[in-house]
Simulated scan of single mutants.
Amino acid sequence: MPTLTAEKKLTQLQKLFSQMDRALIAYSGGVDSTLVAKIAYDVLGDRALAVTAVSPSLLPEELIDAEEQAAEIGIKQELVETQEMDNPDYTSNPVNRCYFCKSELHDTLKPLAIARGYGYVVDGVNADDLHDYRPGIQAAKERGARSPLAELGVSKLEVREISRLLRLKWWDKPAQPCLSSRFPYGEEITIAKLQRVGRAEVYLRKLGYQNLRVRSQEDTAKIELPPNKIKQFVQNIDLPELVAKFQELGFLYVTLDLEGYRSGKLNQVLEIKN
């Protein structure tokens, strides 16, 4: 059952959008931006527009999900292509890579919003994101974007509670950040590498493992699963077949992270350096 806090914050979000005339939502199809799109559409109707950025760092399957969810909500959706792969500041994969990604995104969305008469560009950043290393948040702020969830202190858990309250069937959808987050800082990002890691994750999801990551370092794939799924995985998966599939995709070595999946794990190198 949703908490009173979830109900209260839903009301606050609805009030926030009622103060906007027209809003363009940076919509990835993740649970956060989908909730924002849903509330925006419920309040603003056709004065809300969901815009999805298409690039090699977005899995085709994720784009399909985003389109299906937007259609179910009822909100109008448009696709735009972003060119972050043309920027060496992005592809060289520095620790602030996300800054250049979000700069490209909002440098695309802001002129579109102005041209179409949308007074606000809003995203799905939530309150928990503010406590992680997310340089992309600064890029969005510099370009005038608003983050309703973060502004009202809505946590990731509350995002799911509110989504469930609104009977959104994807309320428990696993987080799916861009594929570039699978690579250690400093390793160059290429389209081929993005496709390789993306196909590997799709393969594992088809085997029934939804909440996972395939981290990539040069020619090595490291599979991250929730700790309580590791034993089952080792016992039930045809390991030689899995290795053969990953090698077919272009990896030479396949490993399993015994610590298990943890969001933002690659940022721990920043913690160590500090």
Rank of each mutant, 00 (worst) to 15 (best):
A140I: 13
Q195F: 00
L105E: 12
E201V: 01
Q235G: 01
K102W: 07
V31N: 00
Y99E: 04
D257Q: 12
R134K: 07
P60C: 01
S28T: 07
N236K: 13
N93Y: 05
S263H: 13
V36G: 12
K76F: 00
E61V: 12
I272S: 05
L152N: 13
V80P: 04
K38L: 11
L239H: 06
R116D: 06
R97E: 14
S103E: 11
T52K: 01
V122M: 01
L194Y: 08
N267K: 09
L168N: 02
K76G: 06
K9M: 10
K76P: 02
D257S: 13
A23E: 01
L242N: 09
A70R: 05
T52P: 01
L79V: 03
R196N: 09
L13K: 13
L270T: 05
F246I: 11
A23R: 09
D46I: 02
L225C: 05
A115Q: 12
P111D: 02
S103Y: 04
Q210M: 04
E218R: 14
G198A: 04
R205S: 01
A37I: 08
R182P: 07
P88Y: 08
G74K: 04
L63P: 00
S55L: 03
K102Q: 06
E188V: 14
A140C: 11
K273C: 05
E271I: 12
A53S: 11
R164L: 02
R167N: 12
V214E: 05
C101D: 10
Y209Q: 07
L35W: 02
E187H: 09
T34L: 02
I25V: 15
P56M: 01
D86N: 15
S163A: 09
K206G: 10
E248D: 13
T3V: 07
K193N: 10
V80E: 00
E218D: 14
A127H: 08
N96L: 03
A26Y: 08
K231Y: 10
K231Q: 14
